[in-house]
Design a binder for these strands. Structure first.
Lengths: 190, 190
DNA sequence: GTCTATAGTGCGATAGAC
DNA sequence: GTCTATCGCACTATAGAC
């Protein structure tokens, strides 16, 4: 008999998603998740800092998703075009196949204020890293911070609409609509 | 001897602020706060849903601060002008006298990720209420949501700079600079 | 892997205001 | 009498310390 199975982390995440969906987040204890995944409670907390974190692993991927296209852009690219590039990259990542999973995951998050707070925290971290990246590229303040806030905010609003019930349009199409709305807000067409 | 003193809620808040400042948020227990304010732990949780909430009471004031000037504006006011009005109202609220207290409070929050998450949650609630208010005024989607997000985001960025060490400018002056930066981002001057 | 502190809940009892 | 604030106590789960 093997002492431990590989992929414990992934198994814990999948188990948690399933139990949260079946009984709700609050009604599911860490002990329950751990036992179902054949590990101890202690092992759960070695993989995830807290109970919520099991749903939010892989945020580094998000930063890379935004950072790579920005780093590859020509040095004289305008900040707003960098925002567009980042959103385009997000649109490539969130393709049709990921929509069902994203909907299930978001349903759990939207049912629990504590999880919503964690999500906002993750987005705030992303904003900070993105702002630093833009400053490294020579964008001054407060332009860099405003651009980072805008990129992540539009990303979030786009994502929320993308997973809305009945929504069929692509991520990129929705993002484009949001960017147009922002442009109209700031400089209204008379 | 009286069974209870009036103003329990306010006393708990003041006590908490003081203890958090002295020993830090994590090192201060709810029992400690309650005992110092001459009530039991149970009474603390009657007034505040959780430990963090003792620092965030009075968010309704914030909504009113934004909502009143918007409700009073002429029906045909452009959304971006409504954003400006809301920020002007915030500037009236956050005058010179409030800066020292705001700095102390923010120092506690910035030292603790859990408190930062709660702050973001409060701002998110504000965004939702503000978006609803704009829709009630006839602003369509996604313009209403984008305007609400923008107003609260610029408010937050302005607030952060307003309490930054060494910052002397008024809230309104900083808000104006942030709005200009946003306008430049979206429609760069060539 | 075990032990423990702390946060947070549920419910019944009690004291005072009205 | 009703209503509300407080207390007291038993209890669970998270999370961290050892």
């Amino acid at each position: 008999m093997v002492r431990w199975q590989p992929g414990t982390r992934e198994r814990l995440q999948a188990t948690a998603m399933q139990l949260f969906t079946e009984h709700g987040y609050d009604a599911t204890t860490v002990v329950e998740i751990a036992r179902t995944a054949d590990v101890t409670e202690r092992t759960f907390f070695r993989h995830f800092a807290d109970k919520r974190e099991v749903l939010f692993a892989g945020q580094d991927d998000f930063l890379a998703m935004f950072a790579v296209p920005i780093e590859r852009a020509p040095a004289d690219t305008a900040p707003f075009d960098l925002v567009r590039l980042a959103l385009h990259a997000a649109g490539t990542y969130f393709d049709r196949d990921k929509r069902p999973f994203s909907r299930d995951r978001q349903a759990i998050i939207e049912a629990n204020p504590a999880l919503q707070e964690r999500e906002l925290g993750k987005l705030a971290t992303l904003k900070i890293h993105l702002g630093a990246l833009l400053r490294d590229r020579g964008v001054s303040e407060p332009a860099a911070t405003i651009a980072a806030e805008t990129a992540v905010t539009v990303f979030h609003l786009t994502f929320q609409q993308w997973i809305a019930p009945g929504e069929e349009r692509s991520f990129e199409e929705i993002a484009s609509e949001r960017l147009d709305a922002l442009a109209s807000l700031v400089h209204p067409v008379r």
